[in-house]
């Protein structure tokens, strides 16, 4: 019995250490492989110059900005919609419609991103071009709208899940005090589920930053600094996908590892920031 328990403990310990270690090992791997870039003194080149490999310029600035713009805009579009949806599903739930609706949302998580990409190219891109009459329609706005649709199920399901954790007697108390639904939502549910909402946002931000195909297919992939949401832009993931077939020995290829590090930093700083903010808010309450 004791031996069995020990074995189990070792197995579980090992599994958790391994999975934690892999994240670190990947970071280490990227740092080591991108080392030639830094040792060749290209660091400032990468930070400040534009991307133009034919002329020896390997700046990733416009690409990092493009990534952040697309992901943040996707969050801005998706957040209110998702919050509304989850409120409908989790709280309002008229005639049990919410349950069916939730099934639908769960189904949405199973759609591969390439499908969204196709829909975007043939439906959304022409629409954006016709409405704004500017550019090609392959732009930050189109990619963000499509990404917003992609990440909304993650958000909705997380929000609904966290709404469930609000104790029923809190809700009953609101009803007893004669509060209406809006008051219930804003003064009781939202403050009590801040952590769950934050987690949902972080996870979907990670998805938005990490998704490759939608950005690759719809955002236009140009390497100029985007000036408006109707400009075409390239994301870090699309950059990696576009250059993966470049010559292994070339500097372009080595900058891909720097792209990887940037992605890593963006997503992990998002996580850290969110953790920090939820901690503070909870103290406050």
């Amino acid at each position: 019995m004791d031996v069995k328990e020990k074995i189990l403990i070792i197995v579980f310990y090992g599994a958790s250490i391994l999975s934690a270690a892999i994240t670190l090992i990947i970071l280490g791997f990227m740092v080591v492989l991108s080392f030639p870039i830094f040792s060749e003194g290209l660091f400032f080149n990468i930070l400040t110059k534009p991307w133009s490999p034919d002329q020896g310029l390997f700046g990733l600035g416009p690409i990092i900005v493009g990534t952040l713009c697309i992901a943040l805009l996707a969050l801005i579009i998706s957040f209110p919609v998702s919050l509304g949806c989850s409120f409908f599903v989790g709280i309002l739930n008229p005639k049990g419609l919410g349950r069916h609706f939730k099934k639908f949302v769960e189904l949405m998580t199973a759609i591969p991103t390439v499908i969204y990409g196709f829909v975007g190219i043939f439906l959304l891109v022409p629409l954006v071009r016709e409405i704004f009459l500017k550019g090609s329609g392959l732009c930050i706005l189109s990619a963000s709208i499509m990404l917003a649709i992609l990440i909304s199920p993650t958000m909705i399901l997380f929000f609904v899940q966290s709404f469930k954790t609000v104790p029923q007697n809190y809700l009953n108390a609101v009803d007893a005090l004669g509060g209406n639904i809006a008051q219930k939502f804003f003064y009781v549910i939202l403050p009590n589920t801040r952590k769950g909402i934050m987690t949902g946002i972080i996870l979907s931000f990670g998805r938005a930053v990490g998704d490759t195909l939608i950005a690759l297919m719809i955002s236009g992939n140009s390497v100029a600094f985007p000036g408006s949401v109707l400009d075409s832009a390239r994301t870090l993931t699309a950059q990696i996908a576009l250059l993966i077939a470049a010559d292994f020995e070339s500097i372009e290829f080595k900058t891909l590892f720097v792209c990887g590090i940037c992605l890593y930093i963006i997503t992990s700083s998002g996580v850290l920031m969110a953790r920090y903010s939820t901690k503070k808010k909870r103290h406050h309450i």
Binding site: D54, I121, R129, S136, G137, L138, G220, A224, A241
Partner: peptide, 24 residues
């Protein structure tokens, strides 16, 4: 061998190029 504008959109296959030009 002249330079290409940084504002150029980038597509990833001949087929995608045809679709893009046809749509725009």
């Amino acid at each position: 061998k002249g330079e290409t504008t940084r504002k150029a959109n980038v597509v990833v296959s001949n087929g995608a190029m045809k679709t893009a030009v046809n749509n725009d």
